[in-house]
Design a protein around this nucleic acid. Sequence first.
DNA 1: GATATTGTTCGATAATATAGAATCTTATTA
DNA 2: TAATAAGATTCTATATTATCGAACAATATC
Lengths: 250, 250
Amino acid sequence: MSDIIKSVDRALDILLYISHIGRPVGASHLSRVMGMHKSTVFRTLITLENKQFLVQDQNTGKYSLGVSVFSMSRKIKLYDIFGPYIKALGRSFKETINVSVLEEPYDGIYRSTIVAKEENNDHALSVNPEIGSSMNCYCSGVGKCLLAFSKNMMPELFNNYNYEKHTDNTIVTSEDLVSELDRIRKRGYALDNEEQELGLTCVAVPIFDSDGWAMAAISFSGPTARICKQDINVLVENLKQVSTEISKTL
Amino acid sequence: MSDIIKSVDRALDILLYISHIGRPVGASHLSRVMGMHKSTVFRTLITLENKQFLVQDQNTGKYSLGVSVFSMSRKIKLYDIFGPYIKALGRSFKETINVSVLEEPYDGIYRSTIVAKEENNDHALSVNPEIGSSMNCYCSGVGKCLLAFSKNMMPELFNNYNYEKHTDNTIVTSEDLVSELDRIRKRGYALDNEEQELGLTCVAVPIFDSDGWAMAAISFSGPTARICKQDINVLVENLKQVSTEISKTL
DNA sequence: GATATTGTTCGATAATATAGAATCTTATTA
DNA sequence: TAATAAGATTCTATATTATCGAACAATATC
């Protein structure tokens, strides 16, 4: 902890703070909130602005996230980000793990995209979706989890699903989906109880952003027999631990 | 320039470099490329990793962009980023300016979204599209500009447009679109020569990423009479100046 | 199995980030 | 419109601390 470069650490705090509060802020405000001297804040702001991590509004003098952040965001490889965490999980438990994010709804349909996965090759039976593949949210663990915990959700759109009854457990009405999402929010995790495919069970938890909304979801999935032999609560606790580890500094 | 905090500046350089080269890199490599001492690089990496701006792959020891960058990217307000630049342009020229980005193709259709605009209220006649509105690329200046300079373009998808002939000048075949894009690449800017609406002219240039691909496009648009009275080359030069200003540090 | 490369640790010194006050600029209130 | 408050910006001295250099440990390479 003592090897950390103080000035850099403070600069990163400022970036995260500006990102978190979501509106332009000035030096004095930051000085108060961060407990740093105004002139130190200012020098840091100058440095961040110079490399375009911040832009200053000429009228108000306040700072927002800059084009460098936008540029970086376009080059992010989500697998690199989530890979290390799920690899660790994969070593402990021998199940398939995947991380998904919610897509912008298109044609009024909410879908999720898989951005990272850790396959389980120890068993013949396992699920292996492709990275980048997208699917409807109503019938998967990560999908429902994202619907339950994401910002700006529009439940009206649930009516746009062309619900397909894959199994007896598949949710096929908006009303059932809404109440299932309530249940998920209450208990803090989602369960795909053979809703997509017979014999396939999945448990998913959200990965929270600094404002408490889901930015992704992470799950164990595998044959019902194997998943249920493990204590679901243990799986959930482990997923939650990784989830909070991921969002710890945001 | 002397007010810049050296350690912070170097940390930002490292972030931009890792983002730019697009694959995980290690301390020694960075030390060589950035001309910094290995242990200084290392301490910087530790600091960036601690706040999750970087993640380290446990197997290789190399670093990638971390979850904090992902988190920030979700909170970016593109208007805050591009607003300051186009405001300055708006003060000089009295025309409508807008900035657009290319959407992920959906249903095989390339569309652009307006992320920032500066309206021109000095004249009764002007164009005022909404921020957030999306439109087909084949019949607008920024749209064609994005098609011409973006990475990973799939020209096959041009066949999916349901071309509508808005005016005599509208492009209505993939072949014509492809050759128009060639022309645009050669001369470095795009022109909407009353292709979308009679009497409406638009000149657009790309905003380049660190790898030379367009991450956005910026344009002047207005009544043909007014736009053409100004020297197109002057407009283009001014747009290009802002464009390079925006991408200068990436 | 030997060698080179790379990730990581540590301590001394000189560079430089910080704090504090002071100035200039914009917004608020009387 | 004047007076006042709040905020942005500049400057400098000092003590903190980032940097360098070298050495170690752990991998990868040949």
